[in-house]
Amino acid sequence: MAEILSFSILYSTIRVATPLLLAALGGLLSERSGVINIALEGLMLAGAFTSAVVTHYAGNPWIGLLAGIGSGVFIAAIHAVACIQFDSNQVVTGTAINILMLGIPTLLSGALFETTGSTPQIPRANLIPNAPAVIAFALVPVIWYVLYRTPFGLRLRAAGENPEAADTAGVSVAAIRYTGVLLSGALAAIGGAYLSIGQSSLFTRNMTAGRGFIALAALIFGKWRPVQTMLACLLFGFAEAAAIQMQGVIPHVRVEYIQIIPYVLTMVVLAGFIGAARAPRALGRPYEKE
């Protein structure tokens, strides 16, 4: 009995952690390049909605996933152009994108399917319940390698830490940052697609329900590093999975108190109580070429 319980907790931990991890890794690439990305929530919604719609019409989840990635990159491009080209406030732009992606899927699904925000049910055979999880966890070593062992990774980190030095060394800070932000759109969109064509079989209004922000929290909790970020996602996933399993088991502790643990932990980490959490030095600072 205990073994079955623990196995099912492990399984649901991974299920909960997968979309968080994908979005958090995306956020990592964007933020290490120097661009704040609180638009992860909106990028996930773009991916979730587009992949559900395209899978419905095309009857193939892989085409749906690709389309979802495309939509994530497109929306991320808006963020990138505003932040890199026009020096917009990155937090404000991210917030705008989150609001935009709350509205657009609902408007479109109303026009396409005459619903209030959801897409038609996709048959079970056309879902990809496991692939995104494999992609997510396989990406951790890949991103670690790229970040710390390749010239591109060095440039990405330099753009986020010391853009002036990177520029002096002949690196185009703008091009690096565009790459970081667009990749974050692609990864967050896969995370969103996992929700609509992996875990469930349709898109519903605001189906991410704050996961983009938990991913952001995991990114900070993991101190902007890939392996630590993965561990943070697993921890947060475990908290959520345990909260679901413990529902009603302990009568006086409400589930909500367990669900807020990740947010409280993130604030504690950010205040520097568990080792110093240092953001990339040039995070949020537009870079103006001299």
């Binding site: 505003a82 404000v92 705008a96 994108i97 609001i99 935009l100 509205g103 109303g110 026009a111």
Partner: peptide
């Protein structure tokens, strides 16, 4: 016929985007 009240959310978001990016 087809437009829902979500149009208002979209307009809000676009206003923020354009005000924030007034350098455009």
């Amino acid at each position: 016929e087809k437009v829902s009240k979500d149009l208002v959310l979209i307009l809000q978001a676009l206003v923020i985007l354009f005000v924030a990016a007034e350098a455009v």
